[in-house]
């Protein structure tokens, strides 16, 4: 359980909208729980589902200070970020289920979801793979004078990838409107961060490149939001930044992972770092909401997210005729299917 003294100790945050942050986090939490259900019900097309339960504050807190037109890339555990940027949970769930109605018509799934309308330049199944795109998006924003920023969200696992450092160097060198958000959930798959690096104070690396950098406690979504506000404002002025949000990954790496590499005591302690429960307690403590109001909000969110399952189950898979589409631009010929090719060759003989 969340420690009450921590809530008392939390400073007043006049600039943050805690009820809204709570709502965003609660929607993410519930969406993720329903993703797990979809999987259990055999309705998920993807065999790989990575839930961000325990990390909701990073998505909700940071995205609260992004604007329309800002672009971002995410990682394999990015459902929450997309939701916090305004994604339609039905189309998200349908995409995770590999359905035609999904954001990518069922071709992308959980790890390749994207939406250009919301500035989502893509989730990524390659650790660190989406990071350098924000350098190009940052260059484009500056070139076109849009005043927009580009943000890469990734996990602590990506701090093992060289391309992160190449990208950080470019962002700092060219003073790009970019922010790197490292959601440190303590684990890269089954390897704890202190087993993957000798210096787990990750933001120090960003200082080495000349980026503005800090670490914030992901238990407190308001702290994340405040850091985001500062860093985003700086990035818009050409001071790129690096933010580490310290969290705990409540469940395994992927849906079927029972976490044999960590013990129950650790998990129990880790799950006390619950940003959703913490925000709820803070709302009550400060009199920003009463229990009945929060229960009603929770019920409304539960109903919204339950509906994503029904919606997804009712959707169809993309027709086979779409299989050869979008390898190249629509005006280009589609690749010749193997069966067609074989028949054509054998028909000659």
């Amino acid at each position: 359980m969340t420690k009450p003294e921590a809530i008392h100790a939390a400073p007043a945050r006049p600039n943050t909208d805690l009820p809204q942050l709570y709502r965003t986090m609660r929607r993410i939490r519930t969406f993720e729980e329903r993703v797990g259900e979809l999987f259990v019900r055999g309705q998920s097309a993807g065999s790989m589902l990575h839930l961000s339960i325990g990390e909701e504050s990073a998505a909700a807190g940071f995205c609260a200070h992004m604007q329309d037109g800002d672009t971002f890339t995410t990682h394999h555990r990015g459902h929450g970020i997309f939701l916090a940027r305004g994604a339609d949970p039905n189309r998200m769930m349908a995409e995770i289920g590999g359905k035609e109605a999904g954001y990518c018509h069922g071709k992308g799934g959980s790890m390749h979801i994207a939406d250009m309308g919301l500035g989502h330049l893509g989730a990524n199944a390659i650790v660190g793979g989406g990071i350098p795109a924000i350098i190009g998006a940052g260059l484009a924003a500056r070139h076109h004078g849009t005043g927009k920023i580009s943000v890469a969200f990734f996990g602590d696992g990506a701090t093992g990838q060289g391309i992160l450092y190449e990208s950080m160097n470019m962002a700092a060198l060219w003073r790009l409107p970019c922010v790197f958000v490292c959601i440190n959930n303590q684990y890269g798959m089954g390897t704890r961060i202190d087993q993957a690096t000798a210096n787990a104070v990750l933001h120090e690396r960003a200082h080495a490149f000349g980026l503005v950098a800090e670490t914030v406690d992901g238990l407190d979504v308001e702290a994340v939001a405040e850091a985001a506000e500062r860093l985003v404002a700086g990035a818009r002025e050409g001071r790129p930044a690096f933010l580490v949000v310290d969290c705990y990954r409540f469940y395994g790496h992927a849906r079927k992972d029972k976490s044999p590499y960590r013990d129950a005591t650790e998990e129990e302690t880790g799950r006390q770092k619950d940003p959703v429960a913490f925000a709820r307690a803070a709302l009550l403590e400060r009199g920003l909401a009463d229990a009945a109001e929060l229960d009603a909000l929770d019920a409304q969110i539960d109903a919204e997210m339950d509906a994503t399952i029904d919606f997804t189950v009712a959707q169809t898979e993309p027709p086979l005729s779409t299989m050869f589409r979008d390898v190249y631009a629509p005006e280009e010929p589609e690749p010749e299917p193997v069966r067609v090719r074989i028949d054509r060759i054998l028909a000659r003989a």
Partner: peptide, 15 residues
């Protein structure tokens, strides 16, 4: 890697 990755992002963002 980042040169090509940045070009990917730039192309997606209108350059």
């Amino acid at each position: 890697p980042a040169i090509i990755g940045a070009a990917v992002g730039a192309a997606m963002a209108g350059l």
